[in-house]
C-alpha cells in the first residue's frame, strides 16, 4: 500500500533536526532507516504530518572509542555494528543481537537508534542495551540529557524521548572480563523474537562473579532478570547452578499472549533460554 501524504525535512545537524521536530509538532516523526516506520506508514497504522529524515546528520553516525566506553551514533546501521572492530572487541553482544534483526536488507538500512527508539518489546537490541547497561544521549530544544537504559524504555513502543527530542548516541560501557551471548527464539528466521535473552557473565576462579541478564518480549519493555542475576552472583560455574538460577527468569515478568505464543509458554521459554544464554555466555558446558 501507499503511505498517506506527509511533509519531509532533511536536516544536516542535530540542532536542525530538533528544530524541524518542534516545528512539526505532535505528529512529526523521526525517520532513520525507516525499517520499522515505513511498513507502519504503508499499512496506514500511522499518518505523521512530517517526517524528519536524520539520515543526513553526520554527527549521528559511527562508533568511537571514548575511554571506558564506546559511543555509538544513533543512525549507525545494524550492518555497521556487524562489521565494526570496536564493537566486536568491546560490545560483541550488540553485534550478535543486531545480526538477529530482520534480514540482510533490513540490516543495511535499519539503525541502532531506530530500533531502540521504536522500543518494540520484541526487538532484539533493547534487551542487549539493557544487559550492557547502556546510556542514551538525547537532544531536545532545551539541550542535551542522558538517560539510563533502565529509564529509557517506558512502555510498549514508548521511550523517555519527548516528541521534540531525538536520540543522538548510545554509550556502552566497556566490560573487560565479561563474556556475552544473545539467545533468540522465533517462529521463522526473519520473525521477531517470541522470547530473547541477552546475557553477560563475568567469571572468576571457576565461579560466576557477576551476571547481567535481560529478557526480550517478556513484558512491555525489555526486562532485567534480577532474581537470575542475584542467584548467579557468586555461584558455581556449573550447568546445574546455572539451570537452577535460570528457573527464576520469569519472576516478575508479565509477558504477552498473542498469536505466536501464550504468556505461560513465554514464561517457560524464558527459563530455558536464560539457561542456554548464560551457559553460552559463560562458556560453561
Amino acid at each position: 500500500m501507499i503511505p498517506a501524504a506527509f511533509d519531509y525535512a532533511k536536516p544536516s545537524t542535530v540542532d536542525e533536526a530538533v528544530r524541524a521536530l518542534a516545528e512539526g509538532g505532535e505528529d512529526a516523526k523521526v525517520l532513520a532507516g525507516g525499517q520499522s516506520l515505513i511498513p507502519v506508514l504503508r499499512l496506514r497504522l500511522a499518518a505523521p504530518t512530517v517526517l524528519v529524515d536524520v539520515g543526513g546528520v553526520g554527527e549521528l553516525r559511527g562508533v568511537r572509542d571514548d575511554g571506558d566506553a564506546l559511543v555509538i551514533g544513533a543512525t549507525t546501521r545494524h550492518a555497521d555494528l556487524l562489521r565494526d572492530p570496536l564493537v566486536a572487541r568491546h560490545a560483541p553482544l550488540l553485534a550478535q543481537a543486531a545480526a538477529q534483526v530482520g534480514d540482510r536488507q533490513v540490516r543495511h538500512l535499519g539503525t541502532l537508534g531506530g530500533s531502540l527508539s521504536h522500543a518494540d518489546p520484541a526487538g532484539d537490541l533493547p534487551g542487549a542495551a539493557v544487559a550492557l547497561d547502556a546510556s542514551f544521549e538525547i537532544a531536545g530544544p532545551g539541550g542535551r540529557r542522558t538517560v539510563s537504559a533502565a529509564d529509557f524504555f517506558v512502555d510498549f513502543l514508548t521511550t523517555a524521548l519527548a516528541p521534540d527530542e531525538i536520540l543522538v548516541s548510545v554509550r556502552v560501557p566497556k566490560r573487560p572480563g565479561w563474556t556475552t551471548h544473545y539467545e533468540k527464539f522465533n517462529r521463522v528466521a526473519q520473525a521477531w523474537a517470541i522470547v530473547g535473552v541477552a546475557a553477560a557473565v563475568r567469571r572468576e576462579n571457576g565461579s560466576i562473579a557477576e551476571a547481567r541478564v535481560a529478557l526480550t518480549n517478556m513484558g512491555s519493555t525489555p526486562l532485567r532478570a534480577g532474581a537470575v542475576e542475584q542467584s548467579l552472583a557468586g555461584s558455581a560455574a556449573t550447568v546445574d547452578a546455572v539451570a537452577s538460577a535460570a528457573g527464576h527468569a520469569a519472576e516478575g515478568a508479565d509477558p504477552p499472549s498473542d498469536a505466536f505464543a501464550s504468556a505461560d509458554y513465554r514464561r517457560h521459554l524464558a527459563t530455558v533460554l536464560t539457561r542456554r544464554a548464560v551457559l553460552a555466555a559463560g562458556g560453561i558446558a
Binding site: 521463522v188 528466521a189 521477531w192 498469536a259 505466536f260
Partner: peptide, 16 residues
C-alpha cells in the same frame, strides 16, 4: 484475520 500480513502468516524462508 489475525494473520493478515507476512509478519503473522509465515511462509518459510530458505533458512527455515
Amino acid at each position: 484475520l489475525l494473520t493478515g500480513t507476512f509478519v503473522d502468516y509465515t511462509p518459510p524462508s530458505s533458512a527455515d
